[in-house]
């Protein structure tokens, strides 16, 4: 029982973790991309389509990542290249993504999807209880954990990471020192897009291997909230993602157990929980202020 619940929580949390991790890097570079939901949903439909066409879930994984990256490129051209309002551009990306995925996915509704099977790690997966939970997982789970650790090391242990944070704190000073502010931000945005695309692919290849319109159901937005929850520290994202995974799963289990609460109220739980968490985090200003990228969402135009 514990094992089954833990597995479902992990499956629900992985896409949140991946999407939030990408956005965390983006925001650390001073850019706010509200298009996570859109990049995710396009990644999801691209992954489904590619896996469906080739029969290989791994082709689906790559397609999802590429699709997310392409969406991010559109955002980068506008919000970085043309210095458009980041909030509005991100919203446009989400609206566009939901439209495109609906259009492309129309013919996939009701088709059976291709499932990405777990990869058991020899020996480790034999450990009782923990083994099946942690070491008999699919690619996305391993990737999400490894990427989180790598991003943490990158941000706080490498010079490139230092540069990225510098660009997010004070782009003018960074520019004055000769750093390519827009180049660094573009790379960060593309990374964010790839991560969101992967997160979407996880939904159609693992979580619910089929195509449903608006399959992301606000997960991209929850991922944005998770970044705030983690106060822009990668390792804290893991806690946040699993907490939200647990809330999502709790709602299913409560419905299955026939709790005498309207199902709609249970479905609203993740969204209400997000609001509660945002309030709790924001009311502790000392905690958030230290890590908030100082130049978040401010467009940068090189002065020359």
């Amino acid at each position: 029982m514990i094992e089954a619940v833990a597995l479902t929580i992990i499956t629900a949390a992985t896409s949140l973790l991946l999407a939030a991790l990408g956005e965390l890097v983006v925001e650390r570079s001073g850019v706010l991309n509200l298009g996570v939901e859109g990049m995710m949903v396009v990644g999801a439909v691209a992954a489904f389509a590619a896996a469906q066409a080739t029969g290989s879930p791994y082709v689906g994984v790559v397609s999802g990542a590429l699709a997310g990256g392409t969406m991010a490129l559109v955002f980068a051209c506008l919000a970085l290249g043309l210095a458009t309002n980041q909030v509005a551009t991100g919203l446009a990306l989400t609206l566009f993504g939901l439209g495109v995925s609906g259009l492309v996915g129309e013919s996939f509704v009701g088709l059976p999807g291709v499932t990405l099977e777990p990869l058991a790690i020899p020996l480790l997966s034999q450990i009782p209880i923990l083994g099946p939970i942690l070491f008999n997982q699919d690619l996305f789970f391993y990737l999400s954990i490894a990427l989180t650790v790598l991003v943490a090391l990158f941000l706080f242990r490498s010079r490139r990471g230092l540069q990225l944070r510098a660009v997010g704190d004070d782009p003018d000073a960074a520019h004055a020192l000769g750093m390519g502010v827009l180049k660094i931000r573009t790379l960060a945005v593309l990374f964010g897009g790839v991560c969101a695309g992967l997160a979407g692919a996880q939904l159609t290849l693992v979580y619910t291997p089929q195509w449903v319109e608006n399959i992301t159901a606000g997960r991209g937005w929850i991922a944005l909230a998770l970044v705030v929850f983690a106060s822009w520290r990668p390792m804290r994202l893991i806690i946040g993602a699993y907490l939200f995974g647990a809330v999502t799963i709790a709602q299913f289990h409560a419905q299955a157990l026939g709790v005498a609460i309207p199902s709609q109220m249970l479905s609203a739980l993740p969204y209400l929980a997000t609001i509660v968490v945002l309030v709790l985090i924001a009311s502790n200003r000392r905690f958030t202020m230290v890590n908030t990228p100082a130049a978040l969402a401010q467009p940068f135009i090189p002065n020359r």
Binding site: L78, N85, A88, L95, F96, G99, V100, G102
Partner: peptide, 17 residues
Amino acid sequence: SDRMAQVFQGVLLFSVL
């Protein structure tokens, strides 16, 4: 497909910005 309208709207907002 009537989804096309939504795609249009997204492109329109991009172009406006």
